[in-house]
Design a protein around this nucleic acid. Sequence first.
DNA 1: GCCGTTTTCGGCCCGACTGTTTTCAGTCG
Length: 563
Amino acid sequence: MKNQEVADLLREIAEYLEITDVPFKPRAYQRAALVIETLAEPIEDIWKAGKLEDIPSVGEGIAKKIAEYLEKGKSAYLKKLKKELPIDADALLSVGGLGPKKVKILYKTLNIKNIEDLKKAAEQKKIRNIEGFGEKTENTILEGITFLQKTENRISLGFALPLAESLKDQLLASKRVHTAEIAGSLRRSKETIGDIDLLAASDNPKRAVEAFLTIAAPKALLGKGEKKCSVILTSGMQVDLRIVKREEFGAALQYFTGSKSHNIALRNKAIKKGYKLNEYGLFKRNKRIAGGTEDSIYKKLGMAFIPPEMRENLGEIQLAEKGSIPPLVKLKDIKGDFHTHTIYSDGRASIEEMIKKAESLGYSFIGISDHFGHLRIANAMDEQRIKKQWKEINAVQKKHPKIKIVKGAEVNINKDGSLDIPPAVLRSLDYAIISVHTNFKMGKQEMTKRICDAMEHENILVLGHPTGGMIGERKPYEVDFDEVVLAAKQHNIALEINSQSKRMDLASPLAKAAIEQGCRVSINTDAHYPDSLEFMRFGVGIARRAWAGKADIINAKELKQKS
DNA sequence: GCCGTTTTCGGCCCGACTGTTTTCAGTCG
Ligand SMILES: Nc1nc2c(ncn2[C@H]2C[C@H](O)[C@@H](COP(=O)(O)OP(=O)(O)OP(=O)(O)O)O2)c(=O)[nH]1
Ligand SMILES: [Mg+2]
Ligand SMILES: [Mg+2]
Ligand SMILES: [Zn+2]
């Protein structure tokens, strides 16, 4: 899958165009890049099918560049741009405070081509003498260089959300704000998060900002005013706080939730209707006609309310205009969890501790799916141990009759597509989760065959963490996802949305594609501790981003009697 | 360079904060 590579190419082209003051084209390239990096289908396949121009925001010009890149592995157009402007645009632009205009001036006046040149010039105090620059700009640049490495680090929703909730709670507890909400990609439940965006309503923004700075105790202050404040925490995480009046809260929440492309599309709809939309409200001439709530804005634009998770400009605005936003699955719909571990393999809690937690969540069933087989690193069970586990499950079941405990196992898919479990044991389970834990580095075809062959076995309920990626640690393995979806459908196997913070696998683009193909999904936590069962909300967020309804999710319904 | 239930040409979201400016351009959300 070369989608990210192609998106990076288009972004780089956009950067050079922007620095050379070409109007509008940069945004066209950026829009195309954004769409392509969240596409479920491999761009190579779309190209081979001759369908590049079917991708929204890709037209003749960009399609040609993509085709050339996929064919030859390089782009003559980018090469030409780089020849005309021989600088490391990507690196220079990644310095905070440096944009295309400044980068151009630095190159024209001091021949600054890369970070090294930039650092040297700043240290020699040459930058402050350029017209339009000054001492402060020079210092900002030096500071920007020291913060460089941390910038592109996106972290998992599972790690960022608790942090954001804690900040929000402290802000509310300070009594310096009336209301506070988490906004941005966190509110949209995006699986990876660039920064924490907080919105607050207050009549005294100055005091609210002071309270925020006390709570955040940041290591760097990026900006501070009456309406917003941006900081970097000691952890390196950026936090943006936006403050508005109470009557503006809905409009501000709409703005700050994004996504950016959803906002732009919505604002264009407003323009077409003769209105203006910004973070303070929806305006007709200079009169505010909506803004107290998000709902009021969508309504006045002739749309149904759009759930935050859907706001990615992927057609949700058209659906909202038709009033056909689908009902999305909710956390409350979840009846149980099929993927959990106990001390019988690499979990850290007893069966009963996990069951008690599941009961407290109101579940009607819980599947215990400890590792089975030869997976040493996960302390996988052998036949003797799983039989002992079944006895214990039976005993715990008697003590906890209100929740149904199902006997599962997580089984490794061997390199050759066989399963690391004897057929007799597989048959005697209530269900199996199969997943790849070894030999990630295989060819795409080989991996596809491996997984599809594995799905031929009986008694498989779920394909676990279907892409094998670990956020910030390991890229997904190469696999033909369309084939996996087809095989899953054929064998009535659900694809997993694994809610572990490091995994978030499937992520929403693939989950959405799978559901569109009619494939069913199982949202699981893969909990190794009782409290980890609460990770379910992250998985539900991803499912909502995939436009999943209750009917698409196998654990959003009561257990069927096993046939 | 892309796009279109008023358009195949003429638009392309809108505002806060900063630094360097005597009135605003640049960068960022
Ligand atoms: N209208 C408009 N809104 C924007 C723009 N940039 C950002 N926003 C809004 C929508 C974003 O979701 C929100 C927060 O900005 P962020 O840069 O933090 O983006 P977001 O949180 O969506 O993604 P992230 O995970 O932080 O990279 O602000 C823009 O250029 N125009
Ligand atoms: Mg954000
Ligand atoms: Mg932000
Ligand atoms: Zn597991």
